[in-house]
């Protein structure tokens, strides 16, 4: 990471810790939502941005995670265990969903995952004995950890922020490891990766499974945040929204999802000053943004940065280029 990049990240981190003390519960709710959705977007960025597998099912994994926690907490399972269970369950389901990715790619994979998302929605809605059906699950409690009650908005925000930072750091570490480089190799040139002796099957499944489990962990926080979950929240709309976060932020950039989630959560709220037309304005802004920076906001930053340094390739970009030799 360049020195400037490090300064920006540290400034943002200080901001994320200090700002909440000046916010009312509404603002805290929004930035908690940002932290929660960022986790899911990081997961999708891993599957899509690094490994290059288009998934339109991330919303379903957020749903599976949310329902896991929503169902386990009332029967007395402690939050940390339910949290881990949500991640594990999504890891397994994500691994299975990865199998089609071994056969088909690109838009075909997108449509398989889209179909999967809707199937999950149907199960959540129809299997009332388990999920509560259309009634959803009401009143998921916010956890108390080692005597620390997160019931208040500020406390819960710090729980979400903490979880996000830990999961993001783990992802960062993983991407630096041989595994992470293998993911990128997979995206850039699967045939070459194969010829270099990479077990592409295993890495494809891994990319799906890890990305999905991050979706599940995000859901595990979503349930106590909103304190009401229903199948509709995890239908295709959520998956589209998460995809939007990744692409708008900048697919394949580590900090893309952070920025993308910020846009998707806050922009519609800001646009409410336009009253009835706020969703139209929001949609129009997204289209404009895509037209002017198709590689996402960080892609734009990268491009501008490179131009300033007159063609010299930025170290931030170099880290994600495939020339780093796969194991």
């Amino acid at each position: 990471m360049s020195r400037l990049g490090a300064v920006v990240v540290i400034a943002a981190a200080i901001f994320a810790v200090v700002l909440p003390f000046f916010l009312k519960p509404f603002g805290l709710y929004l930035i908690s939502m940002w932290a929660v959705l960022t986790v899911a977007a990081i997961g999708l960025n891993l599957t899509l941005g690094y490994a290059g597998q288009v998934s339109l099912a991330q919303g379903a994994f957020v749903g599976i995670g949310a329902y896991t926690v929503g169902l386990l907490l009332p029967i007395g399972v402690p939050f940390p265990i339910a949290f881990v269970a949500a991640g594990l369950l999504c890891f397994v389901v994500g691994w299975i969903l990865g199998y089609p990715a071994l056969r088909v790619q690109h838009h075909y994979l997108a449509f398989v995952t889209l179909a999967f998302n809707t199937l999950v929605f149907l199960v959540l809605r129809n299997e009332e004995w388990l999920t509560g059906g259309t009634y959803g699950i009401n009143g998921t409690p916010r956890p108390t950890l080692l005597g620390w009650s997160t019931n208040k908005p500020l406390d819960f925000y710090f729980l979400c922020l903490g979880a996000m930072v830990v999961l993001a750091a783990a992802t960062w570490w993983m991407l630096r490891s041989p595994w992470g480089r293998a993911f990128v190799a997979l995206r850039e040139n699967p045939i070459r990766a194969l010829s270099l002796g990479l077990d592409t099957r295993r890495y494809t499944l891994m990319a799906f499974a890890i990305g999905s489990s991050l979706g599940g962990l995000s859901g595990a926080l979503y349930a106590p945040l909103v304190q009401f979950i229903e199948p509709n929240s995890f239908a295709l709309g959520m998956s589209f929204n998460l995809l939007l976060m990744v692409i708008v932020g900048g697919g394949g950039y580590f900090f893309g999802p952070f920025l993308g989630a910020l846009v998707a959560v806050l922009l519609p709220e800001w646009m409410r000053v336009t009253q009835d037309y706020y969703l139209m304005v929001y949609a129009a802004l997204i289209m404009v943004m895509m037209a002017f920076c198709p590689s996402g906001l960080l892609g734009l930053v990268d491009r501008v940065g490179r131009r300033l340094r007159s063609g010299e390739q930025g170290p931030a970009a170099a880290a994600f280029e495939p020339q780093s030799t796969p194991p």
Binding site: L19, F22, L23, K24, F26, G27, L30, I31, L266, E269, W270
Partner: peptide, 8 residues
């Protein structure tokens, strides 16, 4: 700007 958007 952030603060305004967050309802401060």
């Amino acid at each position: 700007v952030l603060a305004a958007g967050l309802g401060l």
